[in-house]
């Protein structure tokens, strides 16, 4: 355990959170994969307080980055808002299933699912932009859109596929997030990339937009329960907001392929971590 003064704690945690916010905003993740181990391993903070801080990190990443992504038209607002139907109802279901389902089984199941997603997303690296099957629901909801790719200078038009499957996957993602307290974006980005055929950068930007809402639903409960310690959550919130703002300037100019590589690498890491927790 690292014993430092509260002042040093604030600055170190702030620095770590800047990195978490930047990575999270680029990949559509909440940053919990960095914040939780940093707090528990480095400072021996109680796991519940660490998870409380990571919920704050998710919301800070989401709002900090989405402010830019929505303005820059990287986020597909309609896809995000429609899929929130799935994530929010899934989160309620998950809250009720807590205690009924063995978390170890879930860790194994979703470790495998994420490992499979990582492989499939890697294989899709040359197929990005290939149109999925026509989807009447996507037509009716007017989900098809375009975004300006600053890396290539091209206006990328894309069509959205398999909306119903996407909604089901979001329901599962919301449920798992509520049950395990992790994986908010790790499940959403593959669902949008693999099932719905969104471009990689639109998937991460739209995931970013959505994760804040799911996290806010549980954050209120965590707050009342006393899991959000202001002294721990404050440096996290400030650092993540700054990091996410910086990351949101990088994403429009980043190569889609580079974002995909980075995401697959992080996904492999999360999958291994989940499997280890389930098997142990």
């Amino acid at each position: 355990m690292w014993v430092v003064t509260p002042l040093a704690f604030v600055f170190v945690l702030f620095g770590i959170s800047v990195v978490a916010g930047a990575l999270g905003s680029l990949l559509g993740l909440g940053g919990g994969i960095i914040v939780v181990p940093a707090l528990t391993l480095l400072f021996h903070v109680d796991i519940r307080l660490a998870i409380g801080a990571s919920i704050v990190s998710v919301i800070a990443t989401s709002s900090g980055a989405a402010a830019a992504y929505v303005r820059d038209h990287m986020t597909n607002l309609r896809v995000g808002m429609f899929l929130e139907l799935g994530t929010t109802t899934g989160a309620i279901t998950g809250a009720y299933l807590a205690g009924v389902v063995d978390p170890r089984v879930l860790y194994v199941v979703f470790g495998v699912a994420l490992a499979y997603s990582a492989v499939a997303m890697f294989q899709r690296r040359h197929a990005e932009g290939a149109a999925g099957p026509p989807d009447r629901l996507a037509d009716r909801l007017r989900l098809h859109d375009s975004y300006q790719d600053e890396a290539t200078g091209v206006l990328v038009r894309y069509r959205v596929a398999r909306v119903k499957l996407g909604l089901v996957l979001m329901y599962v993602a919301g449920m798992v997030s509520a049950l395990l307290g992790i994986g908010s974006g790790a499940l959403k980005v593959p669902a949008m990339d693999l099932a719905m055929g969104l471009p990689m950068k639109v998937s991460t930007a739209t995931s970013n937009f959505m994760i804040g809402v799911t996290a806010a639903a549980s954050a209120g409960v965590y707050f009342v329960r006393g899991d959000i310690n202001p002294f721990i959550a404050a440096p996290v919130a400030a650092g993540v907001l700054l990091g996410a703002t910086a990351g949101s300037r990088i994403l429009p100019r980043a190569q889609s392929g580079a974002i995909r590589w980075l995401f697959v690498a992080v996904l492999v890491f999360i999958a291994i971590e989940m499997l280890a927790r389930g098997i142990r």
């Binding site: 989401s62 809402v213 202001p230 919130a237």
Partner: peptide, 22 residues
């Protein structure tokens, strides 16, 4: 710490407000 907690509550409320305003 109470002021910090208020700031965190404002942060938590932001996405909910976004949904409401939509």
């Amino acid at each position: 710490r109470a002021i910090t907690a208020l700031g965190l509550l404002l942060l938590i409320a932001t996405p909910v407000l976004r949904v409401a305003v939509s």
